[in-house]
Design a protein around this nucleic acid. Structure first.
Length: 592
DNA sequence: GCCGTTTTCGGCCCGACTGTTTTCAGTCG
């Protein structure tokens, strides 16, 4: 059965092949948009295609034509026009599009004029001088750039093309901190997908507000001379593109302070959100670009004719002038936010008042109970839950029942010793492959809180995985399902349960579904968390603390939650102590 | 190929940078 990713890949491939063969750019964009929609869909599209095919057309950018292709793919495992395009284009050609500075037009010229049909044949053509004299491509400088692009492509083969947010954002913050010290710089912000809180980013966008043109030159100089720059990809008066040693690309843009808001809006994206904003501006007789929102759509561009913008200095004034609430960056994905009449007050890091998933040295954590409690206190939390692994997680030194019972006593003693914070005695109990929990109910009943998580058998088929999670949710002693799919970002896919079914059951039984905040996990992912919200389930945002620094991952979990539209009143970590006790007790018939 | 608070047809965002060009094509985000 084809996965959503398979369908998305097929559409991406269609788009690439159409580009190379000179198809309509709008058609290419439509396939790209559809690929994105399919990749982000929380539901199994093949199931939808066979059971309720009409529902496909309700999706963003999916019309009758693309819906019929999804149905074709779901039922036959292939698409006729994709096969046709593949037959018309050498199989090694699309890979050329991955070369820096090489787009569809260049690929087409290389193919039709130069007889190039793969990266390998391009490499030999460069070496043999066969490209010399080719229109636009055959000049010494262009050939040198192609050679560099091929070398980088071959060297980077197998290296990650995207970076996890928890790796990229700290790099961006270091760059931003450096540029803030440059004279004449008024403000520096990270924009792009990192600001939107996506789980992975392809590059980093750093926006620099400058007080005068001279500052732009200093910023440029400071950026290119940073430690770790392996290549300067572009360097102009308002833009510098760099590649860092570990492969991450950083784009630094310099803008006048007066236009900072417009530029921040523009460079935060998403691209699709921006397109919709601009269309909205046009519909109101306005013109939106990265310099501002202008009362005019003539040519040349209004900022070049000295026309004063309606709004430009900050994002909120631009949204307001477009008759909209300010959309939080995490929600700027063209998922219907343009239709909002007011913005929800989404959960913030400051709303989080307890951590409900943490490990100690008793299993595989690095902190003893007391140190963990002190860490939680330092974060201003009223409660920390000690949830060491259960016995099935032997590799994590999971606790036998006897050890667990002694550990509960140790937790009680620590709570009395530390003071000023409540320490819950809990467990992260394995959800075994068949849905049974790793401790029996009698043992679970002794705990204040139970986080039930899958750790093994993560390649189960979707139906089995769904039943497995449902079984855990129905257990009356379970409060939270921890990292429900077990996926590792850029690592393993994990389980693919029917998230709507799981979320509906969680809502019915009062079980919270966790957004594990570790940037390797972010599980639930954004689309799953959104489905959970829509089903009415409660959300937990937990750091799954194994070491002190893990507490700093909270922001990634919160960003993921915000992408899903999670509000504080739907997040159990935002409850005050009384509210938390009530929620925990609800599952025990009011025992607390 | 999609889509509709002017539209079921005729639109579909916008500018910077590079390398080639005597005014622009291609790529990128």
């Amino acid at each position: 059965m084809a996965s959503n990713a398979d369908i998305a890949n097929a559409f991406e491939e269609m788009a690439a092949l159409l580009e190379i063969t000179g198809g309509s750019g709008f058609r290419v964009s439509a396939y790209r948009r559809a690929a994105r929609t399919c990749a982000e869909a929380p539901d199994d599209l093949c199931v939808i295609a066979t059971r309720v095919p009409k529902q496909l057309e309700a999706m963003e950018g999916i019309g009758a034509g693309l819906a019929s292709r999804i149905i074709e793919f779901a039922t036959t495992g292939s698409m006729a026009d994709l096969a046709e395009l593949r037959a018309a284009v050498p199989p090694g050609l699309p890979e050329l599009l991955e070369l820096q500075g090489v787009g569809p037009k260049t690929v087409r010229t290389l193919w039709t004029e130069g007889g190039i049909d793969s990266v390998a044949s391009l490499k030999s053509a460069i070496e043999s001088g066969a490209l010399e004299g080719l229109l636009r491509i055959g000049t010494p400088k262009s050939i040198a750039n192609l050679r560099e692009a091929v070398e980088h492509h071959l060297a980077a083969a197998g290296a990650p093309k995207r970076f996890r947010i928890g790796q990229a954002l700290p790099v961006g913050e270091a760059v931003a901190a450096r540029l803030r010290t440059v004279a004449g710089v008024g403000r520096v912000e990270i924009a792009g997908s990192a600001r939107r809180g996506r789980e992975t980013v392809g590059d980093l966008d750093v926006l620099v507000g400058i007080h005068d043109d001279a500052a732009g030159g200093r910023v440029s100089e400071s950026a290119v001379s940073m430690e770790g720059v392996s290549k300067v990809l572009a360097r102009g008066p308002t833009k510098v593109s760099l590649r860092l040693a570990h492969g991450l690309q950083v784009d630094v843009r310099m803008v006048p302070m007066a236009a900072f808001g417009a530029a921040l809006l523009y460079f935060t994206g998403s691209k699709e959100h921006n397109v919709q904003l601009r269309e909205r501006a046009i519909a109101r007789g306005l013109h939106l670009n990265e310099y501002g929102l202008f009362p005019d759509d003539g040519s040349p561009a209004p900022q070049e004719r000295g026309i004063a913008p309606v709004a430009a200095a900050d994002e909120a004034s631009i949204y307001a002038a477009l008759g909209m609430p300010t959309i939080p960056p995490e929600c700027r994905e063209a998922h219907g936010e343009l239709g909002w009449t007011e913005a929800p007050r989404l959960v913030e890091v400051g709303d989080i008042r307890c951590e409900l998933h943490a490990h100690t040295t008793e299993s595989d954590g690095q902190l003893p109970i007391v140190a963990l409690a002190e860490l939680a206190k330092s974060r201003g939390f009223h409660t920390i839950a000690v949830t060491d692994h259960s016995r099935a997680s032997a590799q994590a030194n999971g606790l036998s029942v006897e050890r667990l019972l002694r550990h509960i006593d140790a937790v009680r003693a620590a709570e009395a010793a530390v003071g000023g914070i409540r320490i819950l005695a809990g467990s992260e109990v394995d959800i075994l492959a068949d849905g049974h929990l790793d401790y029996d109910d009698e043992t679970l009943a002794k705990l204040d809180i139970v986080v039930a998580s899958p750790h093994t058998a993560l390649r189960q088929d979707p139906a089995t995985a769904t039943e497995r999670l449902l079984a855990a949710i129905r257990n009356p002693f379970v409060h939270i399902i921890g990292h429900p799919t077990g996926r590792i970002i850029l690592g393993r896919d994990g389980l693919s349960p029917d998230i709507r079914t799981v979320a509906a059951a969680a809502a019915e039984h009062g079980v919270a579904l966790e957004i594990n905040a570790h940037w390797m996990r972010l599980d639930l992912r954004d689309s799953h968390a959104r489905a959970a919200m829509e089903a009415g389930a409660m959300i937990a945002i937990n750091c799954d603390i194994h070491a002190a620094e893990d507490a700093d991952n909270l922001r990634y979990g919160v960003m993921t939650a915000r992408r899903a539209g999670v509000t504080a009143d739907r997040c159990v970590n935002c409850l005050d102590r009384t509210g938390l006790d009530r929620w925990l007790g609800l599952r025990r018939g009011g025992r607390h």
